Amino acid sequence: MIYAFDTYYLDDFANTICIAFDDWSSEKESHIFQEKTSIASDYESGAFYKRELPCIMSLLKKIQLQEDDLIIVDGYVTLNDDGKIGLGGYLFNALEQKYPVIGIAKNGFSVTDSQRRSIYRGESKSPLFLTAMGIDVDALVPKIQRMHGSYRIPTLLKKLDQLTRVV
């Protein structure tokens, strides 16, 4: 199973959604998990994980992960070649490195990361940015490219983003 997470922040709570789907080319989700939590931390530039990681970890308590499951986050797993990690890297470590974590980010990050791949989908001139831990990032490129949807953002990831905003 593939589990994709995203969180949207309102004034007094965070709305975290997880869409589960069976295959990279799935058009529809198998399950949707949702949880509203208090906001654990104010936004801190360079430390986004402090805000979002508690939300994801809380929602993960409702999900029974299996050995071959994969996790996608909206953001980065690795940030640079010096070992700095993003939200996904902190999640990978919090899960004791048992489950591969894949980061699919919409916005670029200016520091060089030899593990970051740019993926162009559809007719878009803007890439998605792929990073990962626990799985070969190059093996993921064709899987992300074949995700359902003819636009830059795959269908299920667009739906995930939209669901976080429905309160």
Rank of each mutant, 00 (worst) to 15 (best):
Asp6Gln: 11
Thr7Leu: 13
Tyr9Ser: 14
Leu10Tyr: 14
Asp11Trp: 05
Ile17Cys: 03
Ile17Lys: 00
Ala20Ile: 04
Phe21Thr: 03
Asp22Tyr: 06
Asp23Pro: 06
Asp23Gly: 06
Ser25Ala: 09
Lys28Arg: 12
Gln34His: 10
Glu35Trp: 01
Ser38Gln: 13
Ser41Met: 06
Tyr43His: 10
Glu44Val: 06
Glu44Phe: 08
Phe48Gln: 15
Glu52Arg: 03
Glu52His: 03
Ser58Asn: 14
Gln66Met: 07
Glu67Ile: 09
Ile71Glu: 00
Ile71Lys: 01
Thr78Phe: 02
Leu79Glu: 01
Asp81Ala: 05
Asp81Ser: 15
Leu91Tyr: 01
Phe92Tyr: 15
Leu95Tyr: 06
Glu96Ile: 04
Gln97Lys: 15
Gln97Tyr: 07
Ile102Thr: 04
Gly103Gln: 02
Ala105Gln: 12
Lys106Gly: 11
Gly108Phe: 10
Ser114Asn: 08
Arg117Thr: 07
Ile119Tyr: 08
Ser124Tyr: 15
Pro127Tyr: 13
Ala139Met: 13
Lys143Trp: 10
Lys143Cys: 10
Ile144Ser: 04
Ile144Asp: 02
Gly149Glu: 02
Gly149Lys: 04
Ser150Ala: 14
Tyr151Glu: 13
Ile153Pro: 00
Pro154Ile: 03
Thr155Gln: 06
Thr155Glu: 07
Lys158Ser: 06
Leu160Ala: 02
Arg165Asp: 01
Arg165Ala: 05
Val167Tyr: 04
